[in-house]
Amino acid sequence: MIDNGLLVQMLLGALLGLSVYLPLAAGQLSLATPAFYAVGGTLAALLSTRWSALGATADGGFPVPSLLLEMALGGLLAGLLALLVGRLVLRLQGIYLAISTIALVEIVRVAILNLPFTGGAVGIFAIPQPFATAAGYLLPALALLALAGWLCQRLELMPLGRAMAAIRNDELAARCMGIDTTRVKLIAFVLSAVLAGSTGALAAHFLNTWNARQGSFDASITTLAFVILGGSRTWLGPVVGGLLLTALPELLRPVGDARLVLFGLVILLGPVLAPQGLITPALLERLGGWGLRSAAGRDAEGAQP
């Protein structure tokens, strides 16, 4: 059964999936999410263990407002880094962008490993806890996910979201239509970084410890798998992918030693059976059309070219 601790991990997975989705919605395959996640996590770990003004108590407690402040700061720092790096790397496209963002992940990992104040390979441990049980983390994780989901839902109707969609379909055509493609891509990249940074700050407290292994190349691939399995065309795809793929290894525990083999099979078969991912725009349209057939069905058909 899924306990609250696993549920929090699933929500964190969904948040990271959304963070990969945002640049992808503007047609940019960026694998930099773990780098920003690591930045946010490291910042939170450092602040909560070193800066007594945040109110960490001797018995390992931590005030909730300080956690929210850390999440904001983590997002801010990651966003700033994305703003700086994005100007450079977003000149690249496709596989070249993917490679350069992998390089960013590696640079951040090696930096965290070697900085004098991040604890080296052991990392930072004894991170104070804002909540007594894992259930406490559900609320901030859900709130962050709801906020990100609301933003993604709104984006589809906003000029920014439409510009992102236009770039994904054809960047050259979008530019010809007067869209400032560099700016739009940069905004998507920064939004993704802010989300990953805040998620990292939350995850650092949830994990009790933070080290350079949290933001690795492996994590890039895992988060990309969330989007590929869930579907990259709607924001709910990565959410569902993140929730499912984080839960699956734990749900497969009764299988014993073969559980990761089954997990691998799911990742293999998912894209084969559902090439567009589990959640496709067509599925959402069908879901949205239910119950409206009688009222607006004829009208809708009339609107189709």
Partner: peptide
């Protein structure tokens, strides 16, 4: 239609997560 579908699915997911949280409470 897609927006409405997304809202419905999100509501469904939220309900599912709420149920899981309640079932999995310590």
């Amino acid at each position: 239609r897609r927006q409405r579908g997304a809202l419905r699915l999100a509501a469904l997911l939220a309900a599912g997560i709420g149920a899981l949280a309640w079932l999995g409470r310590s």
